[in-house]
Amino acid sequence: MIEVENLTVAFGHGPRANRVVRGIDMTVGAGECFGLVGESGCGKSTLLGAIAGRVKHWQGAITIAGEKVGPVKRPLAQLRRQQMVFQDPFGSLHPRHTIDRTLMEPLRIHGIADREARVEKALEQVGLPGRFRFRYPHQLSGGQRQRVAIARALILEPSILLLDEPTSALDVSIQAEILNLLKDLRERSGLTYVLVSHDMAVVAHLCDRIAVMQDGVFVEISSRDAMIRDEVHHPYTRMLREGSLGYRPAAAVPPG
């Protein structure tokens, strides 16, 4: 579904250019959930942005659903195919737009008819009652807002959801609801996911394959089972894995 070849993203020009993503190759099959784990600044969100069409100065090749896409000027029909969900539902929804207006906007941009029915259907898909349609984001809880953000992504009927830390801003109990919702949606409609997270447990819960990213490159791509059974090899992967299990008193502190 997604093929990325030798993708490089650099911000700035010449010798001072900051190469955030450095020659990434990845293939995500249709209906697969592909996880991206790494620490702040490793380039995981930038990689996601390049696939989504938000980050526009990359080199390499990206093919989505058999169609080769360029860094700029992607047709609307192409952009519709992959949709993003962001980390913070407090920041990603317009505070002065009702849920209805938020959900209508992508439909209007893409010139899609039958909007009323689609908005109702999208709310239903994410398990929100129809009466939430004319509320503002501040009248919703964090979990409900993230459901709206997912509904906004789903309303264009994409085949790919790009999820950038979708549960990091949420409480444990709300995170469970959203993770279950994402799992159900994928099983029901055969969506393809790319999930970015810093939490190994969340990624292992949802994803079939997990890529560990450091300094703009993949240091290891492991299967879900290998991650769970502790059969990962790269020291950085091991460190992230152990970190998600809690505190280890024996950890040595390198000076820095």
């Binding site: 109990s173 995170q175 469970a176 993770l179 279950n180 939490d199 292992a204 819960h205 769970i228 299990l245």
Partner: peptide, 20 residues
């Protein structure tokens, strides 16, 4: 108990998380 069961875990993977 609900919090513990809602937590995704590497050591005890489960198909669905319990909702509190």
């Amino acid at each position: 108990r609900g919090l513990l069961e809602a937590l995704p875990s590497l050591l005890h993977p489960k198909d669905r998380l319990a909702v509190l």
